[in-house]
Design a protein around this nucleic acid. Structure first.
Length: 314
DNA sequence: AAGACGAAAGTGGTTGA
DNA sequence: TCAACAACTTTCGTCTT
């Protein structure tokens, strides 16, 4: 955590005082309050849970933390502090006090939001690491004043959605909106907004990430799952994945994989757990057959199945 | 009767002028 | 800001098992 703030951006001094509990670093030379944001991505954060002792180092890689010069509530501008008279210093400390008050208001908000976050996250059975990541994101959003004009719930939902994506345990927007009781559009909007504003990079969601959940919901075998992964990889090579909804592709390849492994599920069943329609599965499925030359395999497999069933029934 | 298939029209979101 | 556009959905009729 200290690796990436080494020098005061204002005076260039390296004599920094870290105050983790306030999430600040203060330059002992010029008094600049640096980088409130640092606590967002850092390991130490107070309010996550009652199990404070069990902190884990998960989530945001350090590459995501960029020091952002122009933002943040730095009181004590332009290195003037060290030149001030006693009077000026009083003013400076008064301002610091305000800063503190604001931050306690933020914390009050945070407590409410965290309760909501916990509720939604447990409803979706999300892992703890995702919850923490979402809390971090929410915290950043609050500090940057991104919640203003938006409902707390929608920001929580957006943060959770982003955290899910980051941790490669994606939930669909539908699931999030159902769990949070927010409009899907609203969740999507705030999600886009906060990720843009916070500079959170989200990789385009990988269909593979959806598979484990679908597989278990459909009670399919691990073999089928890995088959589906293979199919997805091929599909990506054939450029079938870009621009399409990841869930649709995941569902279709799972459908095909189940077919091949003689664990057939109806299109409707697969469509339901994936949250897409049969039509979409059919379209993707058709593309898979065409582009990946899977039709032969399937035909062969179906013959085998036919043969087996004749065998067993006689 | 149920599932698979596909056509046609409708919907919400993105993009580019 | 608006229109074109692609992806996806809804609906419905037909075919297969």
């Amino acid at each position: 955590m200290r690796d990436y703030i080494k020098k005061c951006p204002e005076c260039g001094g390296s004599n920094l005082l870290f105050q983790k509990e306030k999430g600040e670093a203060i330059c002992r030379d010029c008094g600049l309050v640096i980088e409130e944001k640092m606590i967002d991505f850092g390991q130490e954060w107070r309010e996550f849970s009652d199990e404070e002792s069990k902190r884990r180092r998960t989530g945001a890689p350090m590459t995501f933390t960029k020091y952002d010069k122009g933002l943040g509530t730095d009181i004590g501008q332009k290195g003037e502090i060290y030149q001030l008279s006693a009077k000026g210093k009083n003013k400076y400390f008064r301002l610091r006090k305000w800063q503190h008050r604001i931050s306690t208001a933020i914390e009050r908000n945070l407590k409410l939001a965290l309760a909501e976050l916990k509720r939604v996250s447990s409803y979706l059975k999300l892992p703890k690491s995702v919850e923490e990541e979402a809390a971090r994101i929410y915290h950043s959003a609050v500090q940057r004043g991104l919640v203003r004009g938006r409902s707390m719930e929608s920001v929580v939902a957006g943060a959770l959605y982003a955290a899910c994506r980051r941790h490669e345990v994606p939930r669909t927007l539908d699931e999030l909106s159902e769990a949070s009781g927010m409009d899907k559009k609203e969740v999507g909007r705030t999600y886009r907004f906060i990720t843009r504003e916070l500079g959170i990079k989200i990789l385009p969601s990988n269909p593979v990430d959806y598979l484990p959940r679908f597989v278990s919901a459909l009670k399919l075998s691990a073999k089928t799952q890995s088959k589906a992964v293979d199919i997805l990889n091929d599909a990506r090579k054939a450029e079938l994945t870009s621009g399409r909804g990841p869930t649709g592709i995941a569902a279709a390849s799972l459908y095909v994989a189940a077919l091949i492994n003689n664990e057939k599920r109806t299109q409707r069943e697969v469509a339901d757990v994936a949250g897409v329609t049969e039509v979409t599965i059919r379209n993707r499925y058709k593309e898979l057959l065409n582009e990946l030359k899977l039709s032969d395999k399937i035909r062969k497999k179906l013959k085998e199945i036919e043969g087996e069933s004749q065998f067993s029934s006689s």
